[in-house]
Amino acid sequence: MRHANRVKTVGCLMFLAALAAPSLRGTPVFAQGGGGAAASGATCDMSGEWSARSREDYEDRALMGTHLGDYTGMPINDAARLYGHTWDASILSLTTQQGIPHPGQYFMRGPGPNFRMSKVLDEKTQEVVGYSVIGMWGRADRMIWTDGRPHPPDFVESTWSGFSTGTCERGMLKVVTDHYKFGYHRRNGIPASVKAKATEYFVRHGDTMTHVQFTEDPVYLEEPLVRTTDFEINRNQNVGAPGLGFETVDEIATWPKGYVPHFALGTIPDEFAHNWGIPYEATQGGKETLYPEYLQKLKKMMAEQPKPAAAPAPKPAAAKPATKTSAAK
């Protein structure tokens, strides 16, 4: 439910954002415009060191990730729900999983990210041909091409960050991304398929920026997942400190070769619902749960469910320690 209002107001936000940035209105597409736009500097310039404002969904984004079975705000379908129910965070102990950074379907959401967005220039013409974005968790560095190049065919490799192209629209940098690797929409087992495509808008207001991401995933989402995330310029930040990537180590000695951690079919992850006193059904996501009309249904379910004599009072999210049921990573 935390995302419901955001979903309904994204369109308004983007419209207002464009209005609020008069200096950016009507700017041409840079680089593709033959260099004139780039030369004048009147472009969708998003470059800078950006810090996230992780004040909403704090536990989900800035701590260890949210709880197993917490699909609130996610327009997921039955396939995604089943994947999430049987996803065991222990899978991250496989040596083939330890080095995985956050995938592009998720990485603009958390933790942070604090990132450096830099113009990439053509060496000869000094035209802006794109942006590099460095600093997503696990160094899933991304490149946004703004020089008009086409997206590659389906048979080329997928990457964590996908293949992104950008255009300047009404002062916003619009980015379209595909060719993602299989990842996740949330760090508790909600899967994101290789067929996912994202449309992002970077909307700059001076030293602040709103990032809006619409992710379509025909495999796991009933309708596009919409997220907005706010960033602010941090001139003292220098992301991309020396790092050599993750080192994989032997974590579990007793697993037989080829063993894959998982929970059995039929597992019902109801700890989140129980601990927070929410009807289980309401924690299971789906597009119906995103809209205001669902509040009436939720109120009815809340009224009908047994009084939780044994249910512990919810603790403040920020103070809640990570438990064994929290998704790792």
Binding site: M143, W145, P152, P153, V156, E157, T159, S161, F163
Partner: peptide, 11 residues
């Protein structure tokens, strides 16, 4: 990060 991009453009 650009490997796929380069390959794609090559094609």
């Amino acid at each position: 990060a650009l490997a796929a991009a380069a390959i794609g453009v090559c094609v």
